[in-house]
Design a protein around this nucleic acid. Structure first.
Lengths: 148, 148
DNA sequence: AATGAAAGCCCCTTGAA
DNA sequence: TTCAAGGGGCTTTCATT
């Protein structure tokens, strides 16, 4: 992982479909050299893959919320994960410091759908109570910069 | 946006670098037909682009936090956005319902760096106070499914 | 309007150095 | 790491439905 790798990653973060030749031009390497570096970054797990960025509204996921989840008793992170995984509306979940056991990021088609999801979430037997915060607007949403 | 478009999007979400020919094989279309649909999805904004998924640890962004931001007086979302934008550690920010004005998603290299970022955040003059929640582990992190 | 077929060009990929 | 070559993908044009 040197400076050139970081610049290659930057190129791929801003456009994952750019060609090795293009990337090479911008970092001063030949296309095969870039490909070999990218392959190595994928092998070592620095690069996890490539994905399309989709407009959630266009797919009918217009409503978003963050939910603090409080569980009963002593629950392992793995247990929480396995209970949240079956809910497709859960796009992210974290264990956190503080009073809550987890923060869950939800996406639903609308407020009514969100209500349904929250009911299903509260019906999970390890979950004691939830505190929801509905997202009104997204101010920023961007990948972390490669350099500090 | 029909069922074939959704399947094309699914393919690109799971691997943004797959070829049009490959996608075509999986959705039953020729490569040029797939390309034309992808171009249209990009034009209409359903697809916003393609990006690499990077391991944050590997880039030195090992520590994560969510911060409730409370502002002074009446502040517009645009105002909040413009104040958060210069901070590279802010990876996402939302205006929300409830008492807080915004939720900010932060990434830092470690706890010390996180502390520095929180200080810089609290130094923003429109910000009154902040409540931070440090992420202990990521349970789930996935793109929203194309179908409900 | 959307698709498939074909052609030319460019790119990817591998081997050699 | 680069260069070189073969194979394959991309992109445009054209004709069809």
């Amino acid at each position: 992982m040197d400076a050139i790798d970081q610049r290659i990653i930057s190129c791929l973060v801003s456009d994952a479909r750019s060609s090795y030749a293009e990337i090479g031009k911008s970092v001063g390497l030949s296309a095969p050299a870039v490909k070999r570096r990218v392959d190595k970054l994928l092998d070592t797990g620095v690069l996890r893959g490539f994905t399309a960025v989709v407009d959630p509204e266009a797919l009918g996921w217009g409503t978003e919320a963050f939910v603090e989840v409080h569980c009963r008793g002593n629950i392992t992170p793995g247990e929480i994960r396995s209970r949240l995984d079956p809910l497709p509306e859960v796009v992210a979940a974290y264990t956190v410091s503080g009073a809550a056991d987890a923060i869950v990021h939800l996406r639903a088609s609308d407020i009514h759908h969100l209500e349904t999801v929250l009911e299903r979430l509260r019906a999970v037997d390890i979950i004691d109570r939830t505190i929801s915060t509905v997202v009104l607007s997204t101010l920023l949403d961007r990948p972390p910069a490669p350099e500090h």
